[in-house]
Design a protein around this nucleic acid. Structure first.
Length: 590
RNA sequence: GCCGAUGUAGCUCAGUUGGUCAGAGCAGCUGAUUUGUAAUCUGCAGGUCGGGGGUUCGAAUCCCUUCAUCGGCUCCA
């Protein structure tokens, strides 16, 4: 007998070798019908795998991510089976579950393509197969056997994957006539898969590397009930109505013109008013918080960016330098404001007493984005950052960083953007050559961010390899109408530019010291922020923000009160208590 | 940039297999009416069917090319 501990702490005894599904059956037959996977001793496994020792057990129904994932991952295998029967000789890459549904990357063969209108045929085949209630059968094999199996089939992608796995950890799953390399877990059978929709086809590079062959990715979603699928499709339809490109056109906020150039937004009067309202509000808040507003040119000498290191990193992928007619100079459209701000800092001597020096600019920058990356206002080639740089003493770094977290939260609240996630982006220690600066400084910077976020009790996810090339960062992401995440605010710690620009301040010891630099943007860019704001509010703005004639709808009375306070603030009455004003505590007086 | 798709009046869209296929609704303008609040009715105007080239007696409809857009991939200082 073995002891099984349930999530509520209760313990029951079962025969050695019992499976999760059998346990579920004993609890209630209905539960058994609704569970899709189980977490046993912390590992998510198939319901049909025997349990041979004392264990903790959690059964996953549809409501659990683990349940959905088993469901969708199994659906991906079903898709693969359908594809194999319809396209003989098709090769398979990977086919995981994702946040909403699943996909499978396939190679239909040289010169062949799978197009949108074939999806319904594939979908129907999936339905036929699912209706057969075929069991997913797991089997563990040696590496040699696995390679032999997939080599024989000609699945070079699978062979490549197996090559990187450790012998003894390789499992295969078979349903019907289809066998796939897979870690699992899976449903017990295809039976629960009742509603199936293939959503679209897209290209995707094998292993995410653009040097590799491009495979065909088929996205789909499945549900245990048709109603759930109908609801999801309805949601997508509704979401499309909130698309900022659509609302932007309807409300005449902005437009694009091929004659002006792709990715170059044109703000129409009402959009410009909205944008200006945001800028005005932010400017007042920044002044209250001890920022100095500066302005810098739209171009800069190439050597400026060589000094900063940006040229080496991004020069080839930027709008190329322009030359002057006579002097032989080279200038670039500025892709970022930081180097200019460093030179402003350098223009005057600084005492340790005067730090932090907070320098802000609504700076328009120009970045060459590949044509296929452009997307409404969220990804453009010309955009205006609400950029700022804090030059501070090392001992001020953390407090300064925390004050910016406050600011982000305050600003997001002011526009009623309540749902955002915070992501800490660190260096990828495997690929250090992608980054500049010493290990010591990187470690200090990363530590500062992690601690600041912790002390602000900010819920964060940590992602390795997403740092900027000069430093780690904390990003604030907001979802658009259909759930894509966009980075808005960002706070970045940088020890490198101060070195490169030889920035100094005089310490209390009358010696030169190196300041630490924080790069930060709250909106991120006016363009993207407004885009995401539109999609989150369906184009209904708080009173203080709305352009003339736009629909003003306070979302809730609670928010309305807040919005009115902001209006007062903008009208210069003295209600500044709504801002957690840290500048007096830690900043220089203005 | 790569894979797939799309591109018809300001907007949303119809246009079967190439031959009255250049249309409708909304918006706009005109006039009338007034049962008032996204009013009703009359009339008008709006497009060389994204651009260019080709096939054909004839193309919005087929082919090529180019531009732009959409969904992804890659990238995102």
């Amino acid at each position: 007998m073995i002891n099984i501990t349930f999530p509520d702490g209760s313990v029951k005894q079962y025969n050695d070798g019992i499976t999760s599904i059998e346990i579920a059956e004993q609890i209630s037959p209905r539960l058994a019908k609704e569970v899709y996977a189980a977490t046993v001793n912390g590992e998510v496994i198939d319901l049909t795998r025997p349990i041979n020792s004392d264990a903790t057990l959690k059964l996953h129904k549809w409501d659990d991510v683990e349940g959905k994932h088993a469901f969708w991952h199994s659906s991906a295998h079903l898709l693969a089976e359908a594809l194999e029967s319809l396209y003989p000789g098709i090769k398979f890459g990977i086919g995981p579950a994702i946040e909403n549904g699943f996909y499978y990357d396939v190679d239909p063969g040289e010169g062949k393509a799978i197009t949108d209108n074939e999806l319904v045929v594939i979908e129907n085949r999936m339905k036929e197969l699912a209706a057969k209630n075929l069991a997913f059968i797991r089997r563990e094999v040696s590496k040699e056997a696995a390679i032999a199996l997939f080599s024989k089939k000609g699945d070079q992608y699978k062979v490549e994957l197996i090559g990187e796995l450790e012998d003894g950890t390789i499992s295969l799953y078979t349903q019907g006539s289809f066998t796939d390399l897979c870690r699992g877990p899976h449903l017990s059978s295809t039976e629960p898969i009742k509603a199936i929709k293939l959503l679209n086809v897209a290209g995707a590079y094998w292993r995410g590397n653009e040097k590799n062959r491009m495979l065909t990715r088929i996205y789909g979603i499945t549900y245990p009930k048709q109603k759930l699928l109908d609801d999801y499709l309805l949601f997508l339809e509704e979401a499309r109505k909130r698309d900022h490109r659509r609302i932007g056109k309807e409300l005449e906020l902005f437009t694009f013109s091929p004659r002006v150039g792709m990715g170059l937004p044109l703000w129409m009067p009402r959009g410009a008013e909205l944008r200006q309202n945001l800028i005005n509000f932010m400017t007042k808040v920044l002044k209250k918080r001890g920022y100095a507003i500066v302005a810098t040119p739209h171009i800069g000498d190439v050597n400026l960016y060589k000094t900063s290191g940006h040229y080496e990193k991004y020069g080839k992928d930027s709008f190329q330098p322009m030359s002057t007619p006579q002097e032989g100079e080279q200038f670039m459209l500025k892709p970022m404001n930081c180097p200019h701000h460093c030179e402003i800092f350098n223009a005057t001597p600084h005492s340790y007493r005067d730090l932090p020096y907070r320098m802000a600019e609504f700076g328009t920058v120009y970045r060459y984005e590949q044509s296929g990356e452009l997307h409404g206002l969220t990804r453009v080639r010309s955009f205006t950052q609400d950029d700022a740089h804090h030059f501070c003493r090392p001992d001020q770094l953390k407090e300064e960083f925390k004050s910016i977290i406050d600011l982000v939260q305050f600003i997001f609240k002011a526009v009623n953007l309540s749902e955002f996630t915070a992501q800490i982006s660190l260096r990828d220690n495997e690929n250090k050559e992608k980054y500049i600066g010493s290990d010591e400084n990187w470690e200090k910077a990363e530590k500062a961010i992690i601690e600041a976020a912790e002390e602000k009790k900010l819920e964060t996810t940590v992602v390795l390899g997403e740092a900027a090339f000069y430093g780690p960062k904390l990003d604030f992401m907001v979802k658009d109408a259909i759930g894509r995440k966009w980075q808005l605010g960002t706070i970045q710690v940088d020890y490198n530019l101060p070195e490169r620009f030889d920035l100094t301040y005089n310490g209390s010891d009358n010696q030169k010291h190196r300041p630490v630099m924080i790069h930060r943007a709250i909106f991120g860019s006016m363009e993207r922020f407004i885009a995401v704001l539109i999609e989150n509010t369906s184009g209904k703005f708080p009173l203080w923000l709305a352009p003339e004639k736009a629909v003003v709808l306070p979302i809730s009375e609670k928010f309305n009160d807040y919005a009115l306070k902001i209006l007062d603030f903008l009208n210069n009455s003295d209600i500044c208590t709504l801002i957690d004003d840290r500048s007096e505590k830690i900043g220089k007086k203005i």
